[in-house]
């Protein structure tokens, strides 16, 4: 790749706008931010997601705050005979490991600890990079965002696991499992980080690289249809 130069023309500078919902490409020379809607699917047209940075920060900060009770408070209180053990997310992973199921310990550790921490860190990095107009590594940052989108909901794994444990393990005095408040906080963290990821607009990553637009809005309106190059083709379906 060519580093900090964008080879491909961008919709905003060509007076085009792509509908986020149905993908229709429209000629919208001076469409203001909120008034127009797509003639095909009726959803509002935006050049960029509205208030992307502020919304993403708001969700992210809420997630960071809730991440503390999610890790400190117990997620599971299990009683076996007269022996009560209180598990947090981390101690649950440790006890899985001690029981010999290291593979599951790795899965749960990845889904419940690594993914949320990386997600929060990566999203904060992306937001800072966009706010400060960083020009380095846009492709890598774009890929980081796609990874965030893809892995977001996998952190819900522990929440489901604990819900099933609570359902099955209740036979009187022998063994009893109760959920702790930590799991509610954790579920909220997962939802909030997903919302933060959805609010962010990855197009902002590339806006910092754009050379100041030579044509005004009026100029772009009369420009001839652009003839951009075809996209790269890949043989296999991702995902």
């Amino acid at each position: 790749m060519t580093g900090t130069v964008i080879a491909q023309p961008r919709a905003a500078s060509l007076g085009l706008i792509g509908c986020d919902a149905c993908g229709l490409v429209l000629r919208a020379p001076s469409a203001p931010q909120h008034t127009a809607s797509c003639p095909r699917c009726g959803s509002a047209l935006h050049r960029r997601r509205p208030n992307a940075v502020n919304r993403a920060w708001a969700y992210l900060i809420a997630a960071v705050i809730l991440y503390i009770p999610a890790n400190v408070l117990p997620v599971l209180r299990s009683t076996k005979l007269f022996d009560t053990s209180i598990d947090t997310i981390i101690s649950g992973v440790v006890s899985l490991w001690d029981d010999g199921s290291w593979d599951l310990a790795v899965i749960v550790f990845t889904a419940s600890v690594v993914v949320p921490v990386l997600k929060i860190g990566a999203l904060a990095l992306l937001l800072l990079s966009v706010q400060n107009g960083w020009q380095t590594a846009p492709r890598e940052r774009a890929r980081l965002y796609r990874i965030l989108e893809f892995i977001g909901h996998w952190s819900m794994l522990d929440v489901f696991a604990i819900a099933l444990l609570v359902t099955l393990v209740h036979f009187g005095a022998f063994a009893y499992v109760e959920p702790g408040p930590g799991i509610v906080a954790f579920g909220a963290v997962v939802v909030l980080t997903m919302l933060a990821t959805m609010s962010f607009d990855p197009r902002l990553i590339w806006d910092a690289l754009e050379v100041p637009a030579p044509a005004s809005d009026a100029g772009a309106a009369t420009a001839s249809p652009p003839l951009p190059a075809p996209p790269a083709l890949t043989e296999d379906l991702p995902t």
Partner: peptide
Amino acid sequence: VCEHCDAVHQ
């Protein structure tokens, strides 16, 4: 139009 970077392609 690429949803992720706003690039226009045929």
